[in-house]
């Protein structure tokens, strides 16, 4: 199938993109690796696309001692290949490597994936697992949104129609930090059925555990994370089923069990790694 007709504009800056969005009936085109298929199937039919691929600001990299900031325009493949300094003890590169296929990673972007907000997407789960902050720009300037407040549900975010996701801020993981990322897929490159993420940075005291690829927004497991910080992986694993039971109560038992497996394996991978 071929896409329905639309207009196309290329923006040279975020401000220009925001101005075009503010005119209405306009949708941001980043890598287009999710939008493209849905447009080819005529499920998505935007009247106009504003392409942000050539916006240099979206490819900034900045950092201080505690936080790094990645422009939204980096492709998955660039993150996989280490085109910027590693602030995550290799976590981002490995997560990027697991996204879809190389040809998709060569075009799809960090920001595009987050704004698309598929619950099964790797960045959605990774950024929430790390407790990141998203930087968003609209007509009245920039604002920052906690990652857990960014995704409202499947395919729905806190972005308003005239805002562009500009950058992602993530905690800088120290040399002692460990992480585990486990996803259950039937097939290489396919949608995850379940994702488990565990991060522990003794230096900063960061401890996060997440159950992802649920039908809506990812679910964090703060008590399990607290146990991880205090008592290590074994203690965390002991509490996991109970907290999952409570926080994933909206899932059918078999679906919940899969998340528990994914999270457990992430914690185990973290412990081994």
């Amino acid at each position: 199938m071929k896409a329905a007709a639309f207009d196309y504009r290329s923006a040279g800056s975020v401000a220009e993109a925001v101005a075009l969005l503010a005119e209405g009936e306009t949708r941001v085109l980043a890598g287009g690796q999710s939008l493209g298929p849905s447009m080819n199937l005529r499920l998505a039919r935007p009247q106009r696309l504003v392409d942000v691929k050539r916006v240099a600001e979206l490819r900034d990299v900045a950092a201080d001692d505690a936080v790094c900031r990645l422009g939204a325009g980096w492709t998955h493949a660039e993150i996989e290949d280490g085109a910027m300094a590693d602030f995550s003890q290799g976590m981002l590169a490995q997560v990027a490597h697991g996204i879809a296929y190389r040809a998709v990673r060569n075009r799809g972007t960090l920001g595009g994936s987050l704004a698309h907000a598929d619950p099964a997407a790797d960045w959605v789960n990774t950024v929430v697992a790390l407790g990141g902050t998203l930087v968003v720009q609209g007509p009245s300037g920039q604002r920052r949104v906690a990652s857990e407040d960014f995704m409202l549900g499947a395919f729905t975010t806190a972005l308003s129609g005239d805002e562009v996701l500009v950058a992602v801020e993530l905690p800088r993981l120290g040399a002692q930090a460990r992480w585990g990322y486990h996803k259950l897929c039937r097939k290489t490159g396919e949608f995850a059925k379940a994702i488990g993420v565990a991060v522990l940075d003794p230096g900063s005291g960061l401890a996060r555990v997440l159950a992802g690829a649920v039908e809506g927004k990812p679910v964090t497991l703060p008590q399990t994370a607290e146990r991880l910080r205090e008592g290590g992986p074994a203690a965390a694993l002991a509490l996991l089923p109970e907290e999952a039971e409570a926080r994933l109560a909206h899932l059918a038992p078999n679906e919940r069990a899969l998340r528990v497996v994914a999270v457990r394996r992430a914690i185990e991978a973290m412990a081994e790694g």
Partner: peptide, 24 residues
């Protein structure tokens, strides 16, 4: 390995904390 882009200085601002949510 391709060249690694330079990292700029970031204006220090802490990451935002999300509000604690009801568990169920």
């Amino acid at each position: 390995q391709q060249a690694v882009v330079a990292t700029a200085a970031r204006e220090a601002a802490p990451l935002l904390q999300a509000a604690e949510r009801e568990a169920t």
